[in-house]
Design a protein around this nucleic acid. Sequence first.
DNA 1: ACGATGATGAAC
DNA 2: TTCATCATCGTA
Length: 176
Amino acid sequence: MSILTKKFFERPTLKVAQELLGKFLFRRIGGKKFFFAITEVEAYDGFLDKASHAHKGKTARNTPMFGEAGIWYVYLVYGMHNMLNIVTGPKNYPAAVLIRVIKPLSNSVAKLNGPAKLTKFLGIDKKFNKKPATRAAGLWIEDKGVKIKKSQIKASPRIGVNYAGEWKDKNYRFYL
DNA sequence: ACGATGATGAAC
DNA sequence: TTCATCATCGTA
C-alpha cells in the first residue's frame, strides 16, 4: 500500500495523468474506508492550454493549480457539480488532472461514470479544495501494485471543451 | 435537445 | 453591478 505523494505528482502532467489509471482513489468517511480504481482522467496543462482554467492567468478560483503538486483542486461547474482535480507539475506551473471516472470493485454501488457523479457519491466539495491528498484529509490515492500496459491506455480529446480552439482536439483524455 | 443553477471573470 | 459563460447530468 504505497500512498502517492508530492513526488509522484510533481512531474509532467501528461505522464502523471496516464500513470493515474489503475491507481486507487481512497475515501475515509467516519471510520469507514472505501476505494475505487481510477479508469478515466483528463490533463489540463500549463498557461497555453485554452481549456484550462489557468490559461488567463492566476485568479481566485484557480490558485490551487499554481500551488504545490499533490493537493486537491475542487470547484463548482454549471452551478451544481463539483469537479475533483489533483494538482501536478512544479510550483507556480498551473496544471492538474481531472478525475472523471472511478470504478467500485463491487457492483453494489451506483455507477460512477462521470466526474460529477463520483464527487456527489463520495461527498466531495469545496472543503477539499487546496487540501493535500493524504490520509489525514480523508481523500488520497494509493498504488496497489496493479500494472497497466501501455496498450491498455486509450487517448481522445477532452469532454465539454469545444470552446478551446485548437486545444480542444488534443488527446488529453486518457482511459482504460 | 435542453433546462437546472450559481460561481466566476470581464465588461461597463 | 450586470452579464455571458461554463472541465455536467437527468429528463424528454
